[in-house]
């Protein structure tokens, strides 16, 4: 969303996706998706790698969801972790309180997240700019606190414990594929929406909400849908995460850092693009891992995260995709372009 001027609906049809340089990139991307699809069967697919990739794919899924509201519709949502938390609790509580099996429980968690998004979205999506951003932070934070103190329902500071996945020796693969399917489903969903009127209405709202409204777009409905679908993605990710970790704790599942990660992944890959958030999630993990590896930081993990955010915001708020794809040469000049445009 940094500078969305040049972020049109690029992929509104599949024609041309296989042509030219873009075709090469898209083919590489498809190969990568295929590779991820067979990854658990590869000889070097250790538990560590499965674990890491599951995390990345869950992040990708949430980031894809954030992109609906933050990237395409242009509303700086800063509380999407609330939907993750609701998904986690909804799934967890349905399993242990109602004795449901995982999939129906997951459905309840995801629907709960969506319903919540609709209920809060109706009033707060009328707010603009900073006000909307802060309202989302406030709601997410308040929800975390309520979950933390409502001990009888949520287990409070003790959290709730879920049953293990059965058979346990397939647990790693199961959660990997859940995350994989969710992320791929998110990509398909993005593509599907962009080819519908809904997609056009989102971009129109981002570019000029008054004009969109005057042209017959029910902007309230479109915004609420964008918000609800982003909640769906985060809610499903939360439910999967809860069952994977077999533990839900308010302090953990409502951490604002998760929202930051979603946004950062989308920004790194390019907001308002189909593949941006997916690729951005990988870039994000690679960056964090490299930095933590090369700098002996220990407990300064958060400082590294902060430093990455600052560097990205100052030098490449349009993401790294243009550099990676070779559309733009990585040079000092290219890095300073943002500053030249926006400094005083």
């Amino acid at each position: 969303m940094s500078d969305q001027k040049k972020a049109p609906i690029r992929f509104s049809s599949l024609d041309g996706l296989f042509k030219g340089r873009q075709g090469v990139l898209f083919s590489i991307f498809l190969l990568f998706i295929l590779f991820l699809g067979v990854f658990p069967f590869l000889p070097f697919a250790s538990g560590f790698w499965l674990n890491t990739l599951t995390l990345i794919l869950l992040l990708a899924a949430m980031s894809i969801g954030w992109n609906f509201i933050g990237g395409y519709t242009g509303y700086a949502a800063f509380g999407n972790v609330a939907f993750f938390g609701i998904g986690a609790y909804g799934t967890g509580l349905s399993m242990i309180r109602l004795g449901l099996s995982f999939f129906p429980a997951l459905l309840i968690g995801a629907v709960a997240a969506m319903v919540f998004a609709i209920l809060i979205g109706l009033p707060i999506l009328r707010l603009k700019g900073h006000y909307f951003a802060i309202a989302t932070v406030a709601i997410a934070t308040a929800l975390g606190e309520i979950a933390d103190s409502w001990t009888s329902f949520t287990g409070g500071a003790a959290g709730i414990t879920l049953p293990f996945f059965d058979p346990i020796e397939w647990s790693g693969q199961f959660f990997y594929y859940m995350a994989y399917l969710l992320a791929i489903g998110g990509l398909l969903l993005t593509w599907f929406i962009l080819n519908r009127k809904m997609g056009y209405s989102w971009v129109a709202i981002r570019e000029d909400e008054d004009a969109a409204n005057m042209m017959g777009i029910n902007t309230t409905w479109s915004k609420v849908m964008a918000f609800a679908l982003s909640a769906l993605m985060a809610g499903l990710a939360g439910g999967i995460y809860a069952y994977w970790k077999t533990f839900v704790l308010a302090e953990e599942v409502f951490k604002i850092e998760y929202t930051l990660q979603m946004i950062l992944a989308a920004v790194l890959g390019g907001t308002g693009t189909i593949f941006g958030p997916f690729i951005g999630a990988f870039i994000y993990y690679i960056l964090i891992t490299l930095l933590v590896f090369f700098l002996p930081v220990g407990q300064l993990h958060a400082t590294i995260l902060g430093a990455i955010i600052i560097l990205v915001m100052v030098f490449t708020p349009k993401g790294l995709m243009d550099f990676i794809s070779g559309r733009k040469k990585l040079s000092i000049n290219a890095l300073l372009e943002n500053i030249r445009t926006y400094r005083v």
């Binding site: 049109p8 609906i9 009127k197 570019e207 000029d208 308002g272």
Partner: peptide, 17 residues
């Protein structure tokens, strides 16, 4: 204008909604 869209897409929004 919807700046991120092409001329054609801009106008098409009117024809869609």
């Amino acid at each position: 204008p919807f700046r991120g869209m092409t001329v054609q897409e801009n106008v098409a929004v009117g024809a869609m909604f």
